[in-house]
Simulated scan of single mutants.
Amino acid sequence: MLINRVKTAAILAVLGALFILIGGAIGRGPGLVIGLLLGLAVTGGSYWFSDTVAIKASRAQPVTEAQMPEYYAIVRELCQRGGWPMPRLYVTPDQQPNAFATGRNPEHAAVAVTAGILQIVSWDELRGVLAHEMSHVGNRDILISSVAAAVAMAITFLARMAAFASLFGGERQDEGQNVFETLALIILAPLAAALLQMALSRSREFDADLSGARLIGDGEPLARALEKLDRAAGQIPMPTARPEMAGMYIVNPLRRRQVNFAKWFADHPPTAERVARLRSREWARS
């Protein structure tokens, strides 16, 4: 619990500082103030409204127990096992099989599955996936990923604004502004935010895999589901998925967009390694 709070505070501090740096790229005086105010507003807002941002970005729709009784039954059983309150349940219209959890704590959590995952996994395999997602909830990982995603999205937007201001306004170069410094910051600030998200996401996914398997006493359902999801993610695109949100999903929704050096920027551990650890029963020994 304490470690997660420290991680969250560090993310807010580092990503919030990027706002100030980008603001300075717009203008040394007023720009720094604007960057500071935006940083405080967005980092604070992302803490309280991270679940709303993620749900709206994914176009997820709430579902009732009457509409999806099996979905509710699985999550309710997992919550009883873990001692957590029932989260809000959603389904997104995406055809790529995937799932994510979001929210600042178990009392304000939401879980979403895509329409595609309901078509290719069995209910037992979906139970493994949802055990993984509920482990994120129980470990309070979703606060870290949700805040990081919301702030990274805002940093990317502000960097684009800074680029526009650099080209069409702001301080003149002969007044001391270094255009190369500005352009470097505009490029590197979103990259730094993304790299921070990725490093955190990889370790959290391993932990949630093992915690989820331990929750249901079996790693095989999740292992089978991960194999199916990984294959499908390489074949079925998710056009609505934003790079800043990719780390929230159980498998990388942008896998089809990967390039040769994608491993340098991977926000998920290799699926084969995740499956191997599940089938080796590492979850039972940890």
Rank of each mutant, 00 (worst) to 15 (best):
A192V: 11
I142Y: 12
S166K: 08
L188P: 09
L195S: 13
V251K: 01
K263N: 14
V151Q: 05
G217C: 01
I144F: 12
E205I: 09
Q173R: 11
G128S: 08
A57C: 06
E282Y: 05
T64H: 05
P270V: 14
P106T: 14
I74W: 02
A225I: 07
A192W: 12
H268Y: 12
G138R: 14
G234L: 02
R59T: 10
H268V: 09
T43L: 00
Q95E: 12
R257T: 14
M86K: 10
F157H: 08
A193V: 13
E220Q: 14
T8G: 07
R81H: 06
G128K: 01
H268G: 10
A66E: 06
R274N: 06
M245P: 02
V111K: 06
P243F: 02
R127M: 03
S145P: 08
Y90L: 07
G103W: 05
G83S: 09
D141V: 04
L21R: 03
R231W: 06
R160L: 14
W123M: 03
N139W: 14
I34K: 06
V147K: 01
C79E: 04
A223N: 06
W123Y: 08
F265G: 04
G176F: 11
A162M: 10
N178A: 13
N98A: 02
H108Y: 12
A152D: 14
I34R: 11
M245H: 13
I117T: 01
L196F: 13
G45L: 10
L195V: 09
A213P: 05
E181C: 03
A233P: 04
A109V: 05
V147G: 08
P85V: 08
S286W: 04
A149T: 13
D94H: 12
I117N: 00
Y249N: 00
Q80K: 14
L32H: 09
F49C: 11
I20G: 03
H136S: 05
S135F: 06
P106N: 11
G83A: 10
L89D: 02
N178E: 07
L37A: 15
T156R: 08
A213M: 02
A154T: 04
A233E: 01
L15G: 04
A199V: 13
A148N: 07
A148W: 01
L130F: 00
I117V: 05
L185K: 08
E205F: 13
E244N: 13
A112D: 06
T114V: 02
I3E: 13
V113Q: 02
A192M: 15
A149F: 07
